[in-house]
Design a protein around this nucleic acid. Structure first.
Length: 243
DNA sequence: GCGACAG
DNA sequence: ATCTTGTCGC
């Protein structure tokens, strides 16, 4: 047993599953197998509903082959912090565009387990359906956990888009041919847009509304900002303890 | 074949 | 992601 005087608690250790994909071919096969499980037909939670909005993010120390993940729960009404948890582990996959989930998910799952609350929405750093195989990180995490998820990415990936209007809330589609798979969304006036896509149990309109609601002051959602800070702190603490 | 390419 | 100096602004 361990006592925690830290407000955040000690990080959980995240083991990489023995059957985790090791090659790109194995990883893409997993995506092809799971992608049918995505539900984008309706939104499990609406902005304004009570509930817990959970941001997840990951920080890396490739030198030491370490990952730290954080899950931070904010009250949907008022965005006050309710709980947070962190986890650390070994890097489970190299960075390959399109296969980000295999790098982040084991540690993120450990942090979510440790949270002690069931999220009503998980906000991921990256993409969901706006992905080469329609199964980015947010969708993958959603299908594995069964939780509603959205992706909010900081930079464009594979799909083209026009610049959204200058006002907060202005958006323009991310096109995969003639299909809208995501949206470039202006969360703050005069600031670069973010890129929103559905993860699981969510629609694009509602995903954008959540992203906007979660970003009252800065470009990025408060969930993402909180999770980013928390996983960086966890990684720094880990490097401090060891060498 | 070459470049681009979430984090 | 991470590395990094200064700079502009509240």
């Amino acid at each position: 047993m361990s006592s925690s005087s830290e407000p955040t608690g000690q990080p959980a250790w995240a083991a990489v599953p023995a059957d985790w994909p090791r090659t790109e071919a194995e990883a893409t096969a997993v995506q092809e197998r799971l992608r049918g499980g995505v539900d984008a037909s309706s939104a499990a939670i609406l902005p304004g509903d009570p509930g817990l909005m959970v941001g997840v993010d990951v920080a890396y120390d490739d030198e030491r082959d370490l990952v730290a993940a954080a899950a931070v729960a904010l009250d949907a009404r008022g965005l006050a912090r309710v709980a947070q948890a962190t986890a650390v582990g070994r890097v489970s996959f190299p960075y390959v565009p399109g296969l980000l989930a295999f790098r982040e998910i084991p540690t993120v799952l450990a942090a979510l387990d440790r949270l002690g609350h069931t999220p009503d929405l998980v906000v991921c750093d990256g993409y969901g359906l706006a992905h080469p195989r329609r199964f980015g990180l947010a969708s993958h995490l959603g299908v594995i956990t069964g939780l509603p998820t959205i992706g909010v990415a900081k930079s464009p990936f594979v799909f083209r888009h026009d610049s959204p209007g200058p006002r907060r809330g202005d958006a323009s589609p991310l096109w995969d041919g003639t299909q809208e798979v995501g949206r470039a969304l202006r969360t703050q006036p005069g600031v670069k847009p973010v890129f929103v896509s559905v993860g699981h149990r969510m629609t694009l309109d509602v995903a954008c509304a959540h992203a906007l609601h979660l970003s009252p002051r800065y470009r990025l959602p408060e969930t993402t900002r909180a999770a980013d800070a928390a996983c960086r702190r966890a990684l720094a603490a880990l490097a401090r303890e060891h060498g």
